[in-house]
Design a binder for these strands. Structure first.
Lengths: 282, 282
DNA sequence: GTAAAATATGAAATAAATTTTCATATTTAC
DNA sequence: GTAAATATGAAAATTTATTTCATATTTTAC
């Protein structure tokens, strides 16, 4: 296991002094790997043997070995923690924090995703007669993006971010249609309704939402995307990025399923834009 | 750069003894990170100072520091690199690859971003009488998302993904208005036109695009977001995620600039949704 | 609440590992 | 072939980490 996570996990089992070390390490692991045991002890205001004991408690051979593990953890990209933006952060600070927590949450989302469900969803999407993407608010953006991707595949795709259109469209759906309903909270009443209407009309409903929510219960398949609880404070941020990346996976799965010839077609779609662009002079 | 690659690259510039060390390291780097300088020297049949000099030649502070770098390189078996999806990838494989390259590109984007430009953009946005977000295709999704964020701030915000509406809106702009034009390629003719129209009408134009492109040249401020060249193969993927994260930064900067009372307001906006949702039973 | 036991901590001593110094060997340039 | 430059290693010096042991703190048992 990643040693930084391990430290976080075992934080309560530490003694007072050990916690001090842990905090210094967690607050700037990148500095610690270049510090001597003496420097770290001083920074944490405890003695060197305590640092040493701390290292052994975490199943490492000693301080140098601990640093090795730490270095590896850092390399593994888990310095990306969900750090919160603070009142007095400079542009540099909040930018770093936002990018980092986005990355951290993508990592989280990836771990929580069930790839066999993705696979099943791709199955359904490739066989669909019509695909609909519905979302509201921030999730409308995700649905919008999904449309932008799937329409390239030359399948009938619709996208609505209007409750009434969604309802009408859902009522008109039939066997063989796939309806993708997107909602991070999974509690938006009208979307739950739409999902249920679509199912009543024999469409297959895929939910991109949190597991166990009212929306999830109405879906045939649930693609649940987990992000840290406290990330989306006043605005959806990490959740929609994770959803969009999931859309990328579905779209990619779709193109893979369709084979080589199909991808040539994608290139044609892309090339069709050429005349609307300025040439690249190189 | 990965230190193992570096060793391989510089193999011919090494002296006879140094090459011996290099070979031992390359043949079993995993063992070396747990070996002392004495053990390594013995295994390579050379003296300890030679190992030390070898480490410094590779721009590390000394042997322990070198081991740290080596440990990180090893951990980086599959770091967040831009690994490409392959014909025969399973759902599990392509999902992992897509998430990882998204993260890798966010990292890249973060490094390329100039935070002082972000700061300046936030300045302009907070002072704007009206904010417009324009984009087409995948960038329309980003503009859509930006609208979704900024309308919460109780400032006049418009978003168009229709060329004619964008033109009309640009022509109607005036001093004090901020127009944000989004295009990854920066070569979409109609958007370049829109940017130029907006400037002619005294609006301040912020471009979220690649530096040095025709669009960039028409803008007052360019927020350039760099992603790996070969990421967006047939569909925009990493580029739009990076742009969306940048939007998060701008929105966050905006709320910070406006102070505490303003953030209470955001909470009210969020709470206003409550009646449209199912209660959370906890 | 108190005493005994268990646990935690740090100062100093010890041990280990790394780096520097300097003398010697090897290579390179002419 | 010789002088200069470079490379190398033995030993000393230094830095760093670990162990030992005495003391302080916390927990447990009554």
């Amino acid at each position: 296991m990643n040693i930084l996570e391990k430290i976080t996990n075992e934080l309560d089992t530490f003694s007072k002094s050990e916690r001090k070390v842990a905090e210094v390490i967690l607050s700037s692991p990148g500095t610690v790997i270049h510090a001597s045991i003496a420097a770290l002890a001083k920074q944490a205001n405890i003695s060197e043997p305590t640092v040493n004991r701390f290292c052994r408690r975490l199943d490492t051979k000693g301080y140098p070995d601990f640093k090795l593990h730490l270095a590896q953890s850092l390399a593994n990209g888990t310095p990306y923690v969900n750090r919160h933006v603070d009142e007095n952060d400079s542009a540099e600070e909040y930018t770093a924090k936002i990018f980092e927590s986005t990355m951290a949450n993508l990592e989280l989302a990836r771990k929580s995703l069930d790839t066999s469900t993705i696979n099943r969803s791709v199955d359904l999407l490739t066989q669909a007669n019509k695909i609909s993407f519905f979302g509201l608010g921030a999730s409308a953006v995700v649905a919008h993006d999904a449309q932008n991707k799937f329409f390239r595949f030359n399948v009938p795709v619709v996208y609505f971010d209007d409750i009434l259109m969604q309802r009408m469209s859902a009522i008109n759906s039939r066997q063989g249609d796939v309806v993708v309903v997107i909602s991070h909270t999974g509690r938006t009443k009208s979307l739950v309704d739409v999902a249920s209407l679509a199912r009543e009309n024999d469409a297959t409903v895929i939910g991109i939402t949190t597991a166990g929510t009212p929306l999830a219960k109405e879906c045939n398949i649930v693609l649940s995307v987990e992000v840290a609880e406290d990330t989306d404070l006043y605005m959806p941020m990490a959740s929609r990025i994770a959803q969009l990346t999931l859309i990328d996976c579905l779209a990619t799965g779709f193109t893979l399923r369709r084979g080589t010839k199909f991808r040539d077609n994608l290139k044609k779609v892309k090339d069709s834009l050429r005349s609307s662009r300025f040439e690249r002079k190189e």
